[in-house]
């Protein structure tokens, strides 16, 4: 079964073709705590071309998740701005930006199908239409037959699949993923990574993927952005020039190891 996720979207115009999918300009972020002001991010500039799979890594507490929440319009930065396809992001824009969180964040009182369809329900899409689409997406993530299960009847990996299907539900050109596989065991993480690549390969969305797994970052991404420890600054942008489709054998290659080493040495100096 083929599922054309792009059909509902307008064909990209010539202008949007060479425009970055996401542009982060001069983001600096401070917040107040009981012990005074914390500088979390300093002068982040980043531009992501359409269709790229970009990883965001850095020592814990470097603000990579905060940066993603700013891209999603959920957190307002102290200074600087985010633009998606040239239009500024000042609040959540689900039709332009899908978000997948670390916790699957499923509504426990709704079925898998209703959870995937939830963003469409909020937009007032009729039930039959939104559930037909949600059904196709559950099929796409390998959960055919689990439509009417509730989250407590699903394993951790299945829940995260539902969350990914929900991220694709509105067919946004950009998908922001905040450590989506962090709570899963190694095997499930690897399998889901492969599935994500398979879906991404077919629909070529722009993906920003926050992770603390370096192997995962190298395996999935076209490019890995390394942030420094607090305050977070862009340390390096490392091009992952491994061919696609990626295969598990690549992980054993010297080149893969070198790329991973390169990222690790940058982060280790920060920790």
């Amino acid at each position: 079964m083929s599922l054309d996720l792009a059909e509902s979207r307008q064909a990209p115009s010539a202008m949007t073709q060479d425009q970055p999918a996401i542009e982060v300009r001069g983001i600096t972020h401070r917040y107040q705590t009981g012990r005074g002001e914390v500088l979390a991010l300093r002068d982040i500039n980043l531009s992501v071309a359409p269709g790229r799979f970009v990883g965001l890594v850095g020592p814990s507490g470097c603000g990579k998740s905060s940066l993603l929440m700013m891209m999603a319009g959920l957190v307002r930065p102290s200074e600087g701005s985010v633009a998606v396809a040239g239009a500024p992001v000042t609040r959540p824009a689900p039709e332009r930006l899908g978000v997948v969180f670390q916790e699957a964040s499923l509504l426990p009182w709704r079925t898998a199908l209703e959870n995937v369809a939830f963003p469409l329900k909020l937009r007032g899409v009729p039930r039959a239409e939104r559930e037909a689409r949600a059904g196709q997406l559950l099929h796409l993530v390998g959960l055919k037959g689990f439509e009417h299960r509730h989250p407590h009847e699903l394993s951790g990996g299945m829940k995260q699949r539902v969350a990914i299907a929900r991220g694709f539900c509105q067919d946004p050109p950009v998908l922001l993923m905040d450590e989506p596989f962090a709570a899963l065991d190694e095997q499930t993480r690897m399998t889901l990574g492969d599935e994500l690549l398979r879906i991404w390969d077919r629909h070529r969305k722009t993906v920003v993927f926050v992770t603390h797994g370096l192997t995962e970052a190298v395996y999935l991404c076209d490019e890995v952005v390394v942030l420094s420890g607090r305050p977070g600054e862009v340390l390096a942008r490392i091009e992952i020039d491994l061919p696609r489709p990626r295969t598990w054998e690549m992980m054993a290659t010297e080149h893969f190891g070198r790329l991973r080493e390169q990222i690790w040495s940058l982060i280790r100096r920060q920790a």
């Binding site: 999603a72 319009g73 959920l74 959540p92 824009a93 689900p94 039709e95 978000v99 969180f101 964040s105 509504l107 939830f118 963003p119 329900k121 909020l122 937009r123 509105q170």
Partner: peptide
């Protein structure tokens, strides 16, 4: 769940009912 609803553009009323 509140963050999820907000990320998907839920209105205040929808956040309450959903």
């Amino acid at each position: 769940l509140l963050r999820l609803a907000r990320a998907n553009g839920a209105t205040r009323w929808q956040i309450w009912t959903e």
